[in-house]
Structures are given as structure tokens and as C-alpha cells.
Amino acid sequence: MLNYNIRGENIEVTPAIRNYTENKIGKIEKYFEDEPNASAHVNLKTYSDHTAKVEVTVPLPHVVLRAEETTEDLYGSIDLVADKLERQIRKYKTKVNRKFRRQHVDELQPIDPDLWGGEEEHEEHSSKIVKTKRFNLKPMSPEEAVLQMEMLGHNFFIFRDAETDSKNIVYKRDDGDYGLIETDEE
């Protein structure tokens, strides 16, 4: 069972908002075989331009789920965050299941298809683009791009190399180091 820590900034967390948030975020519990003893940290913020931001963090034993959304409707932001968290869980479970399957294939043992959740895998491939961002690529060095990526809290960053004028990508590797993808534009 998730324990909820719901905070409001520039907004009073009414019982209706609390119930709606707990019901929407609580839907992720169906993905857990054992009920997690975890806390869902929810921040609800409203701004002077009438937008509402919802941030949710759920630290679990092997993964931290985190999502945030800003829309003009508080309830809409809560819905979108709940959907993001659900996608993250399905993606994580698919990764774990693939690793489980690979281990069994390596050991040449048959696998029961029900164990590896083919349904989640199918859902992952039916993803759609729900948000588009457009921005100008600023010329910088790969080191500057890594700093920008870290400041934004992202795991990758696209930039224009100041020396070669090519579009490149820096990304954070699982081992904690960084990678650089250089492109050749023809």
C-alpha cells in the first residue's frame, strides 16, 4: 500500500483533490505482486499564469519512479502524471522480464510465456508521441553539453558542436560515465 505525502504550493489540498490524487496514483499498485511499502511524494503547484504543475516521486527498492506535468488543469496534470508513472512501470517490468528471459535462454531452459508478460511488451510497442519539443541547438563543446545535461537533470542532451558544427548527443551511461554520439550530415 502506498502512503501519500501530498503538499500544495499556492493551493490548498482539499479532501477532493487528495482523494482524486490518491485514486489516480494508486492505480500503479496493480503492477506490484507484493504490495509495496512505499511513499508517494506528491507536490501540487499553481502559478500566476493559471497553470498547475504536479510532481510525483515514488522511491521503490530497485527503481525510483518520477513524473511531472504542467497543464492549465490540475486534474489533467494529475491524470497525465499517473499515465507517465504507469508507462514507466510497464517499461521497467518489460526490461526485467527480458533480462529474465535472456538468462533462461542462456541456460537452455524452456520459459512459460505467462512468466515474461508478452502483453506489456506489446503495449510498449504501441506507444505514441504525446509531446513535442522544439528548440535551437546552441554551439558548445561536449563538456559544456554534459554540464547543461546535468543541470537539467536529464540523461541525454542534444547540441551543435562548436568546432565541427555537427549535431551531437551526449548521454549518461549506466556505469556513471558519459557517452558522445557524433553525427555525419550528408
Rank of each mutant, 00 (worst) to 15 (best):
Asp73Val: 12
Asp73Gly: 03
Asp73Asn: 13
Asp73Pro: 03
Leu74Ala: 06
Leu74Pro: 06
Tyr75Gly: 01
Tyr75Leu: 14
Tyr75Glu: 13
Gly76Pro: 06
Ile78Met: 08
Ile78Pro: 05
Asp79Arg: 11
Leu80Arg: 13
Ala82Cys: 04
Ala82Asn: 08
Lys84Ile: 00
Leu85Phe: 05
Glu86Tyr: 00
Glu86Met: 00
Arg87Glu: 07
Arg87Ala: 03
Arg87Val: 03
Arg87Asp: 06
Gln88Lys: 05
Arg90Met: 13
Arg90Cys: 03
Arg90Ala: 08
Lys91Tyr: 10
Lys91Glu: 15
Tyr92Gly: 04
Lys93Asn: 13
Thr94Asn: 05
Thr94His: 02
Thr94Gly: 14
Lys95Pro: 00
Asn97Ala: 15
Asn97Tyr: 13
Asn97Val: 02
Arg98Ile: 15
Arg98Ser: 12
Arg98Gln: 04
Lys99Gly: 12
Phe100Gly: 02
Phe100Lys: 15
Arg102Val: 12
Gln103Pro: 01
Val105Ser: 06
Glu107Gln: 14
Glu107Cys: 04
Leu108Pro: 01
Pro110Trp: 04
Pro110Gly: 05
Pro110Glu: 12
Ile111Leu: 08
Asp114Cys: 02
Leu115Arg: 10
Leu115Trp: 08
Trp116Met: 06
Gly117Asn: 15
Gly117Val: 11
Gly117Met: 03
Gly118Asp: 11
Glu119Asn: 05
Glu119Gly: 02
Glu121Val: 14
Glu121Tyr: 11
His122Trp: 00
His122Asn: 07
His122Ala: 13
His122Asp: 07
His122Thr: 05
Glu123Ala: 05
Glu124Asn: 11
Ser126Glu: 15
Ser127Val: 05
Lys128Val: 11
Ile129Ser: 04
Ile129Trp: 04
Val130Ala: 13
Val130Glu: 15
Lys131Val: 02
Lys131Trp: 00
Thr132Tyr: 02
Lys133Tyr: 14
Lys133Met: 02
Lys133Phe: 09
Phe135Pro: 01
Asn136Met: 03
Leu137Pro: 01
Leu137Gln: 08
Lys138Asp: 15
Pro139Gly: 02
Pro139Tyr: 03
Ser141Met: 06
Ser141Ala: 13
Pro142Thr: 10
Glu144Tyr: 02
Glu144Ser: 11
Ala145Arg: 08
Ala145Gly: 10
Val146Cys: 03
Glu150Arg: 03
Met151Leu: 14
Met151Ala: 14
Met151His: 12
Met151Gln: 11
Leu152Pro: 02
